[in-house]
């Protein structure tokens, strides 16, 4: 017997799950998409990812160590996840210094200034991304072409970008349709776009893994994609001439990445299934509004950030079903 016994309140057993394991599962779930983007964008994708991860982890360590003067918690894996997510949200050939700046905003401004993991209101990677998008609109919206694309160009546009630009220039939709990639290309990820968002299929794969490992629940992704589908579907149904099919909307842009990896971030999403449904529908509707009526081609980052802001409110009003509660 060790000389003094330990006394603690019950329970005396604990699951073998930990924050670290959860984070590493998220990382694992992102690997297929990362592998795909290395496949289509070449080693550039890997470089960007590594820089983003290194910068996020370094900022987290340095700030916690020297500014906040707490024990650094870099090895909990959350900075790693933020880094990869940030990389997923930028073009694969982004200059390194812009990335580092984005990482700084993500980690220092969006996460640590709120108190660190668990206290932040907004998804750090998204704050970094939106900051970069506003500060460096040109670099952030010039996408490299995929290796597989047969076109002879150095930059590519995203499908959503094509549409938005075309409509702004007054071209009718059916003319634009011809320039769009095929559904199978979009599914696979043979299109222009941010590093991690191109392949809907790989993202879905990661999502299924996370569902299986219970890292996420179905509520948020289903609510986002479902509401986007319905919302987009209504417009398409009313006027198929002027609006794109809902399937296109689901596959284009950051919808999959946002719904599966960004919006499901535990810290910034609501606590209950019901709350997550409200949150997801909010994201879906706002995204579609921005896509259809806004001046940006893509809006899911903004939509998620807006709904992040509503999360505390949702948590305050949407309560789990109490046992034995009258209702």
């Amino acid at each position: 017997m060790s000389n003094v016994l330990t006394i603690s309140p019950s329970p005396h057993v604990h699951t073998d799950d930990s924050v670290r394991k959860i984070m590493y599962r998220v990382v694992l779930a992102m690997l297929p998409a990362l592998a795909w983007s290395v496949f289509v964008f070449g080693l550039d994708a890997l470089r960007v990812t590594l820089i983003a991860v290194a910068a996020c982890m370094a900022f987290e360590y340095l700030i916690q160590r020297f500014v906040m003067k707490v024990t650094p918690s870099v090895n909990d894996g959350s900075a790693l996840v933020t880094g990869i997510l940030l990389a997923f949200n930028v073009p694969a050939d982004l200059p390194w210094w812009i990335l580092v700046l984005g990482a700084f905003v993500a980690v220092a401004v969006a996460k640590l200034s709120f108190g660190g993991l668990g206290s932040n209101i907004f998804n750090p990677a998204l704050v970094g991304r939106v900051f970069l998008l506003i500060s460096f609109p040109v670099q952030m919206t010039t996408w490299p072409v995929t290796k597989q694309a047969a076109v002879d160009a150095t930059t590519a546009a995203t499908p959503l970008g094509l549409i938005k630009e075309g409509i702004l220039n007054g071209k009718p939709l059916n003319e634009l349709m011809g320039t769009l990639p095929s559904t199978s290309d979009m599914l696979l990820g043979n299109i222009g776009g941010s590093l991690g968002e191109v392949s809907a299929l790989m993202l879905l794969l990661g999502g299924l893994y996370m569902l299986w490992k219970k890292v996420i629940t179905w509520h948020t992704p289903v609510a986002i994609l479902g509401s986007m589908f319905v919302f987009g579907g209504i417009f398409w149904f009313v006027d198929p001439e002027a609006y794109l099919t809902p399937v296109f909307h689901l596959l284009a842009g950051g919808a999959m990445l946002g719904a599966i990896f960004m919006a499901t971030d535990m810290v910034t999403s609501p606590m209950t299934g019901k709350g997550q449904l409200i949150y997801g529908v909010g994201i879906g509707v706002i995204t579609m509004c921005i896509r259809l009526f806004g001046s940006y081609p893509e809006g899911i980052s903004f939509a998620i950030l807006i709904m992040n802001g509503f999360t505390p409110l949702i948590n305050a009003y949407v309560k789990p079903k109490r046992f034995g509660g009258q209702k």
């Binding site: 003094v4 016994l5 330990t6 006394i7 603690s8 309140p9």
Partner: peptide, 22 residues
């Protein structure tokens, strides 16, 4: 001398409602 080690939320209120002390 200590005869046990308390390993719970470290407040006196919680420790004392659990047991007599370390």
């Amino acid at each position: 001398p200590k005869t046990s080690n308390f390993d719970g939320a470290t407040t006196c209120a919680i420790a004392s409602s659990l047991y007599s002390g370390e």
